[in-house]
């Protein structure tokens, strides 16, 4: 049965519940979440209309160029960004690194991204996200991966794409795959859902939710390679409820203009006249990478399962 938010708290005030954790993602919908590395960038993002910022030390394209182990950001840097803006602040923890997640929760971040952009800390297990009061967003390439993360307590999903490339092709692939899977589950008779759960390697109860809802039981954004207003609008058409833009803004020629243009394009994604207008004069987008040119071992989307 699909959970509703109507359960009584019997007069008590309840925090850290599934309802408030998944509810914040509902408030982010239709918005753009921007990667920022300094308080100044965070302010530019807020002023441009970002619905949240992702605080990190290096944007994914720099992580890619820099190499080495990528970890949770310096707490001072995260706190500096928290103090600079009034919109929600997200931060990334390594896959499986529940202590980094505990530290981010203690710092007061509003959302934790358990992210393949950082070097995984555990190749077998993702963080058990249920005990946390702070909500988590996790990446996926298909429905099975999304439902495994939701099963572990993720209150929001993003398709992975390929971060730091400025190339939208993987984001498109993952979003199309996710929706193909959802439509198949929705079309199945109820008595085939257990076998489908086995195929997807996903929790049966969540497969039933997808069958009933025709969508994920949590909010789903697109991420990984979105570099232009047209890319953002494309992902909205393909079923994203909002977008993450990483390197695409602050690696472009004119970040302020690009940020404003992507915000407008995400709201007005169905209106080509507005998209044409906002795509003018944004300066050049980030250079970008051909996926085939990336060595197999450096494909970030393969991190996590």
């Amino acid at each position: 049965m699909v959970a509703t938010n109507d359960h009584s708290t019997n007069g008590a005030l309840a925090t850290g519940t599934w309802t408030v954790k998944s509810g914040l993602a509902q408030m982010l919908k239709g918005g753009v979440i921007m990667d920022v590395v300094t308080p100044e960038q965070a302010k530019i993002a807020e002023e441009a209309g970002a619905c949240a910022v992702m605080a990190l030390e290096r944007v994914p394209s720099d992580i890619r160029a820099h190499g080495g182990v990528a970890r949770m950001s310096d707490p001072d840097m995260i706190t500096g960004i928290i103090e600079a803006v009034s919109i929600p602040v997200m931060a990334k923890a390594r896959i499986g690194h529940f202590v980094e997640a505990q530290i981010l929760e203690a710092l007061g971040v509003d959302y934790i991204d358990e992210s393949e952009v950082l070097t995984p800390a555990d190749e077998a297990h993702h963080v058990n996200k249920h005990p946390f009061r702070v909500p988590f967003v996790c990446g996926c390439r298909d429905l099975g991966e999304a439902l495994r993360r939701i099963g572990e307590g993720a209150a929001m999903i993003r398709t992975k794409g390929e971060a730091g490339t400025g190339n939208v092709v993987e984001a498109v692939r993952h979003m199309r795959q996710l929706w193909d899977d959802i439509r198949r589950v929705q079309s199945l008779p109820e008595d085939e859902l257990m076998a489908e759960a086995k195929n997807l390697q996903a929790p049966y109860e969540l497969v039933k939710d997808v069958h009933a809802l025709g969508k994920l039981p949590v909010v789903n954004f697109a991420a990984g390679g979105i570099a232009t207003p047209a890319d953002a609008a494309l992902m909205m058409h393909l079923g994203a409820e909002g977008v993450f833009v990483g390197s695409g803004i602050f690696k472009s020629e004119d970040p302020e203009k690009m940020a404003r243009a992507i915000v407008k394009a995400t709201t007005h994604y169905r209106d080509p006249a507005i998209l044409a207008e906002v795509s003018r004069g944004t300066g050049s987008a980030m250079k970008g990478l051909e996926i085939g040119a990336i060595p197999e071992t450096e494909i970030l989307a393969r991190r996590g399962w």
Partner: peptide
């Protein structure tokens, strides 16, 4: 007053 109850971990539900 915006965000008057604190950050996301302070979000709550109540009858």
């Amino acid at each position: 007053r915006r965000n008057a109850f604190g950050r996301q971990v302070d979000s709550f539900e109540l009858d």
